[in-house]
Nucleic acid binder design. Structure first.
Ligand SMILES: Nc1ccn([C@H]2C[C@H](O)[C@@H](COP(=O)(O)OP(=O)(O)OP(=O)(O)O)O2)c(=O)n1
Ligand SMILES: [Mg+2]
Ligand SMILES: [Mg+2]
Length: 987
DNA sequence: ATCCTCCCCTAC
DNA sequence: TAAGGTAGGGGAGGAT
């Protein structure tokens, strides 16, 4: 029998953390899981060939072509693609691997990507041995290799993606053709200027810079090829000491992004949101995890009866007791889990560093030695600068507001570092380091003082991605009611899981965490509650390597002692303001009335604080996310001397943002330029090397008449905005381009969504061809801002009532109504959530239509274009007033849910509501209308039958709603088919 | 009132 | 040296 140990004791044995008891059982389960999530050429997909039959690859690190492309190729040609290495992986594809990585690999078949490409070209599987990547011969230098890869990537990119020559070069831009030549002079200029500016510029720098420029000039495809070969020696080109690398260098962007943790973090976050969406789309609705869980539950019955329950629960005493006591009571409410990897970057990095176990460890770029003092920097000065500015802002906020506030000290991060200590940030530190007060995001210089024994390890972005995939794959084997928060964290609606497997939350957590540990070598913590807030707070309490269920009965007590800064949404600023009011924990917060909180902190913020203080949170999980913006920004290494340099960089950013838009299958109707500008009196040399220092932030936006993903347009708009601001290029410290008001294109065409997808896909091409180019009139732009030319006649009514009742006639016309509705979503029940999301899609599509019509003021030409082209050949839209259904223009780019999803939703909707809510009726009607437009009448028929059947025993309001839906659907039917649809009726 | 733009803040 | 990105919520204040 297992002896119960004290928590502390158990935590000390960090090797197994109680997981040992799972033994080989887990291993077996994991392997099943792997199979489940292997991406394979589906039976549904048509193969182009079977070249790669029996081959399963895993792509390690950066390759050309990239992992995505390789995945596509594999699937197309009968192969298998793994997101991470498994036993089934037959080959690893890599262009370049550090020795340390090679050693861990389970197979010797490390092959260059050319193997795949050439095999496809050859139409047959070539001998991979000719493509082996022999990398065990010399002591490699990861950084150099890495940079080399980056620059070859860059070359490819320019080669393939840059626009053809910019004809009206009068308007400033560096066109592709002359770029190489121009850049030379450019660089010389720069170096001269630099020597004046800063006195540590060496010849070597210029030389290196030039050589690199030459290297990355788009030359010929053969150049690309030669660079791809990993054997070519990178060393001599890079030996010069690059003492000042700025965004002027053409390869800066990719190098910076390659090293930026925050960039990787964001990218991976977006990636996993998309991953969840894709899994949902492809889901067959089977969740093997549930079976595993049930199996386990069956086999572990004895253990529970022996009263060793608490051994399952690595937890804290009081709550454990409460949890145990309440365990038998079935929880009628929803159970939300929040799960988060423990000190993620460190955990991943330590997988292969047993030598560092037990040591305080941090992931950072700093190597552990003190940084060099640079001339022209003065941290004292910059610190003082920040302090003063903070005071000024505080006064601004306080003026006009009464009340004597408590004096609260505001610390700057620079306070704790001396002149020569590293300002490299710590991405993540383990719990040993945290004991000493080290925190994520802290400067290394500060951390090493708090924790002199602190060890550092480098970043391993590939590793994070692999582990994240495993995390998401494992969770997805239980449910797809997942909201991805980041690469190491998500919310999960566990209600179904617990019900189906008949397990408690903590049983599930134990099993799950063991599984995760086994698969990834990293620990995770899980928190449960009846809403996301509670779950999140529970995770915080559970950390590290623990789990905790905050039960409804305990919420009140629990919240009392939560510090305000521990509430999600309360960061430095709000915490400071709350502290200034004498509010430090939720108990204090609870004493304030809703009204006073709103008065002090604003409407929404006040309300959220009021609710969160009580552990309330009615937010539904956003399981089906749709991004609202795409941006690329760099606030590091920005040191321009000429406007031309600045504009060249903006051009690169425009490229970058476009490639991201394409990937996300969106186009944007608004371009926003974001700049950071050295604050007046702020030192020219920043405290942090190449940092932005104290800055003013400025953003300017333009609305376009039509959505775009054209780098040329975006570049021009952005530059126009930049010029308008008349900022000295040398004061720029940050530049970003953001695209807003997105219009989403059709889904990836994954074999799943059949007819509809095809239909939409067809239309899409048409729409894109007809895309209007605005601003083709070169640099002179008229009235670009304050674009909202919505004339009253175009936005007929705007009252909420009509918006909900008069469905079909105006389903998509009123901006005001639509937006009002979207806001209501947040207060809605979870059941309706999916509907709302559907709804959002329509809105986006819709909104663009409205805007297109209402944008008349901008350019007559562009407006004509917009109205005319997508509808070409359709019943003419004389004016929008006379056309009651603008949606008639096929909803080109709207992903739809599948029939079975729709059915589920309808069922859930009807069973969950006593009476239908008008807005839901609107949403449903919209959905049906779109099905009709997509000529998907079978589905419409099925849905009406279903709805009718479900409503037979419902009251009058439901039946009336049904009538409304039918009526409005028939209107659309008349327009599209000139006939009514036969649907069941109530008497 | 409700919008839009330009911020600021928060989170990872 | 150092790699301070990015998406989204929300508020202030002006325009309508
Ligand atoms: N300022 C920050 C915060 C986080 N991260 C990265 C590194 C973290 O490992 C990862 C996940 O962030 P978490 O907030 O989940 O922090 P950890 O996982 O490191 O620690 P824990 O979750 O155990 O508190 O994001 C970062 O680079 N910089
Ligand atoms: Mg974490
Ligand atoms: Mg996290």
């Amino acid at each position: 029998m297992i002896k119960k140990k004290s928590k502390r004791e158990r935590r000390g044995e960090d090797e197994d953390n109680g997981f040992a008891m799972w033994g080989g059982y887990m291993a077996a389960k994991i392997s099943k899981l792997e199979e489940q999530f292997t991406v394979q050429a589906g039976k549904e997909t048509e193969h182009e060939s079977n070249i790669f039959q029996g081959i399963a690859i895993y792509v390690n690190g950066y390759t050309v072509p990239g992992a995505d492309e390789l995945k596509r190729i594999m699937i197309l040609h009968g192969g298998v693609f793994h997101h991470y290495e498994t036993r089934k992986t037959t080959h690893i594809i890599a262009s370049n691997l550090p020795d340390t990585k090679v050693k861990q690999l389970k197979t010797l078949n490390v092959v260059k990507p050319a193997w795949i490409v050439d095999s496809v070209t050859a139409g047959t599987l070539l001998d991979f041995r000719k493509y082996l990547l022999y990398s065990n011969h010399t002591k490699s230098q990861p950084r150099l290799n890495f940079q080399q890869e980056i620059s070859s990537k860059k070359t490819i990119k320019e080669d393939s993606e840059l626009l053809p020559c910019d004809q009206d070069s009068e308007s400033n831009s560096l066109d592709n053709e002359t770029k190489c030549k121009e850049v030379d002079t450019n660089t010389c200029l720069r170096s001269e200027n630099e020597q004046q500016h800063t006195n540590h510029c060496r010849n070597g720098v210029v030389e290196t810079g030039l050589r690199e420029l030459v290297k990355s000039c788009p030359d010929s495809p053969s150049l690309v090829k030669s660079k791809q070969s990993p054997g070519s020696s990178p060393s001599k080109a890079r030996t010069a000491n690059p003492s000042r690398r700025t965004a002027v260098e053409p390869q800066f962007l990719s190098e910076f992004y390659g090293n930026s943790r925050l960039h990787h973090l964001s990218t991976m976050g977006a990636m996993f949101k998309e991953y969840v969406a894709k899994l949902r789309e492809d889901s067959q609705g089977d969740f093997p995890g549930i079976k595993r869980l049930m199996e386990w539950k069956k086999n572990s019955g004895i253990r529970q009866d022996l009263g060793a329950d608490e051994d399952l629960i690595d937890d804290f005493d009081d709550e454990t007791f409460m949890n145990e006591r309440n365990k038998k009571v079935p929880c009628p409410t929803k159970t939300i889990m929040h799960i988060d990897m423990d000190c993620f970057f460190v955990s991943v990095g330590l997988r292969n560093r047993p030598d560092l176990h037990g040591c305080p460890v941090a992931v950072t770029h700093a190597k552990g030695n003190a940084s060099r003092v640079r001339e022209g920097t003065n941290r004292q000065y910059e610190r003082e600068f920040y302090r003063q500015r903070f005071q000024t802002r505080l006064k601004q906020r306080q003026s006009g507001r009464s009340g004597e506030n408590e004096e609260v000290e505001r610390k700057s991060r620079l306070d704790d570092v001396d002149e020569n200590e590293s300002l490299s940030e710590i991405a993540s530190c383990n719990y040993e380091a945290r004991k000493a007060g080290v925190k994520n995001g802290m400067f290394f210089g500060t951390a090493i003082k708090l924790c002199p024994g602190l060890k550092t390890i480098p970043y391993d972005f590939e590793g994070y991605k692999e582990v994240s995939y495993k995390l998401y794959d494992i969770l997805a084997s239980y449910t797809l009611e997942i909201e991805a928060v980041s690469c190491d964290e998500m919310y999960v609606n566990c209600s179904e899981i617990l019900k189906k497997a008949n397990v408690t939350s903590l049983e599930f957590a134990s099993f799950l965490r063991a599984e995760l540990k086994e698969a990834t070598g990293c620990t995770a913590s899980a928190g449960f509650g009846s809403n996301p807030l509670q779950a999140r707070l529970a995770t915080k309490k559970a950390k590290p390597n623990g789990q905790f269920h905050l039960l409804p009965t305990d919420v009140e007590m629990f919240m009392h002692n939560i510090k305000v800064e521990d509430l999600p949404g309360v960061g430095h600023s709000l915490a400071y303001r709350l502290h200034a009011e004498g509010i430090t924990d939720c108990r204090d917060l609870q004493r304030l009335s809703l009204a006073s909180l709103q008065r002090k902190f604003g409407n929404k913020t006040g309300e959220t604080l009021h609710q969160h203080a009580r552990g309330e949170d009615q937010r539904a999980l956003d399981v089906c996310h749709q991004r609202k913006s795409v941006s690329a920004e760099v606030n590091y290494g920005i040191r321009f001397t000429t406007q031309r340099e600045a504009e060249a960089f903006v051009q690169q950013l425009a490229q970058e943002v476009v490639s991201r838009m394409k990937q996300a299958r969106v186009r944007g109707r608004q371009v926003t330029l974001k700049l950071m500008i050295r604050a007046k009196d702020a030192p020219v040399e920043t405290a942090k090397f190449m940092g932005h220092g104290a800055c003013d932030n400025i953003s300017r936006s333009v609305s376009l008449g039509t959505p775009t993903d054209d780098p040329d347009i975006i570049y021009r708009e952005a530059v126009a905005l930049e010029r308008q601001l008349k900022i000295s290029p040398s004061d720029l410290r940050g530049v970003g381009i953001q695209m807003n008001r997105l219009v989403h294109s059709a889904t990836s065409g994954s074999a799943k969504s059949t007819v509809l997808t095809k239909f939409l896909g067809l239309k899409k091409t048409k729409g894109e061809n007809s895309e209007a180019r605005i601003e083709s009139d070169g640099g002179k732009r008229v009235g670009t801002e304050s674009n909202n030319v919505k004339s009253p006649s175009k936005c007929i009514e705007s009252k909420k009532i009509s918006q909900c009742t008069e469905v079909s006639n105006v389903p998509v016309r009123r901006e005001t109504g639509l937006i009002g509705e979207v806001k209501m979503e947040k207060k809605r029940s979870a059941v309706n959530d999916k509907m709302c999301q559907e709804r959002k899609l329509v809105e986006q599509e819709t909104e663009s239509k409205i805007k297109s019509f209402s944008k008349a003021g901008r350019t007559a030409a562009s407006c004509d274009h917009v109205v005319g082209s997508p509808v070409a050949g359709k019943p003419k839209l004389t004016s929008e007033e006379s056309n009651p259904i603008p949606i008639l223009t096929p909803p080109v780019e709207v992903p739809m849910m599948t029939l079975s999803q729709a059915r589920k939703l309808v069922r859930a909707w009807v069973t969950s509501e006593v009476n239908p809510q008008t807005c839901d009726v609107v949403m449903f009607t919209n959905y049906i209308q779109r099905l009709v437009l997509a000529r998907h009448l079978e589905d419409v028929d099925i849905l009406f039958s279903l709805l009718h059947r479900l409503l037979i025993n419902k009251g009058r309001p439901w039946k009336a709603a049904y009538g409304t839906i039918v009526k409005n659907t028939q209107t659309i039917m008349q327009t599209v088919y000139g006939a009514n649809l036969k649907v069941p009726e109530f008497d």
